[in-house]
Amino acid sequence: MAGKEDFQIVLPFDFDYYLPKNLKEAVELYRYLDQQGKQPMFFSGGTELITLGRIDLAYTEAVIDIKEIAECQMIQFSDHQLLIGSAVTLTQLEEANPFPLLTSVSSEVADHTARGKITLGGNICAQIFYREAVLPFLLADSELIIAGPEGLKTIQINEIFQEQLRLKKGELLVQTSTDKRFIEAPFYAVKRRQQWDTGYPLITLAALKMGQELRVAISGLCPFPFRSPEVETYLNRWGQAAETRVDNALSALPKPILEDVEGSADYRLFVLRHLLVDALSALERAGA
C-alpha cells in the first residue's frame, strides 16, 4: 500500500491500460470503451495525463497507448514527402533531424530528458498553450493523416488546426506529411524566455521563406499557437520599411494576447515586435 510520502506520487484515479498493435484495433477500442462510459483517452508520451492527472486536471478510465502502432512510430521520406509518426518522441526527432526547422523549435520544448517522453502528436494535441511542435507544420502547409471510425483521412493542417487540433471524438493523429520543398527552405526560429536559458517560455517565433514569401507562426503570444494570413500579408510588403511592416502586422494579431506571470500583454508585444524585425532581417535576402 502507498506509504505517507507516496500519496503524492500516485495518480488519484485508476484506469485500464490498452496497448493496441494497429490502428484498427485502437479505433475500435476507443469506440467500445466510450460506449462503456470509460472516457477513453489516446496516449502517446502521456506526460500531460500524468502531470495534470495528479492535480485533478485530467481524467480517464481507459488509456489507449498508441506507441506500438507502426504507422505512429515512423520517420520516413516517401517520394517528396516526409512522414513523421505521432508517437515519435521529440528526442528521436532531434537525433534523426529530418526537418531542421522542427528540430530547432522542438529542441526548446521542456528539457532534454522530458523530450525523450514527449511525442510529436502529444505536443500538437496537448492542453498547454505553447505546443511549439505544431509551428513548423503550419508553416509548411503539412497534411495530417488521421484515423477514426470512418477509416483514414488526410487533411491540410491549416484547415483542421484552428487554435487546437479539431479532432472528432474517437479520432487520433497518426502522421504528419510534409513536402520536401518546405523542409529545405530557409528558416528562422527563436524562443524568448523571461529569464535565463531555462525559464518558462515567453514567445516562440518560427519563420520560413518560400521564394519571396515569408511565413510566420507564433506560440506563447495568444492562448494558442497560430499562423495568420493577415499578419503575413503585412510582413510581405517588401517595398515598405521593416518597422512599418511589423507595426502593421502587430495590428492584425489574433486576440487575446496572454497576460500572465511570465509576461504582460504589452511586454509580449514588445518582445514580438523585436522578434519580427529580427526575422525579417535574417530572411530578407534568403532564397533570393
Binding site: 506520487i9 491500460y17 508520451g45 502521456g46 506526460t47 500524468i50 502531470t51 495528479r54 488509456v63 528526442t91 521542456a110 528539457d111 532534454h112 530528458t113 522530458a114 525523450g116 517522453k117
Partner: peptide, 22 residues
Amino acid sequence: NGDCGACTVNVDGWPMKSCLML
C-alpha cells in the same frame, strides 16, 4: 511534474524521468 530530474533513471540507454512514465 517532470521538472526537477531527481527521479531520473535510464530506460533502454536513455534518461527518463520516472515520474513521467507509467
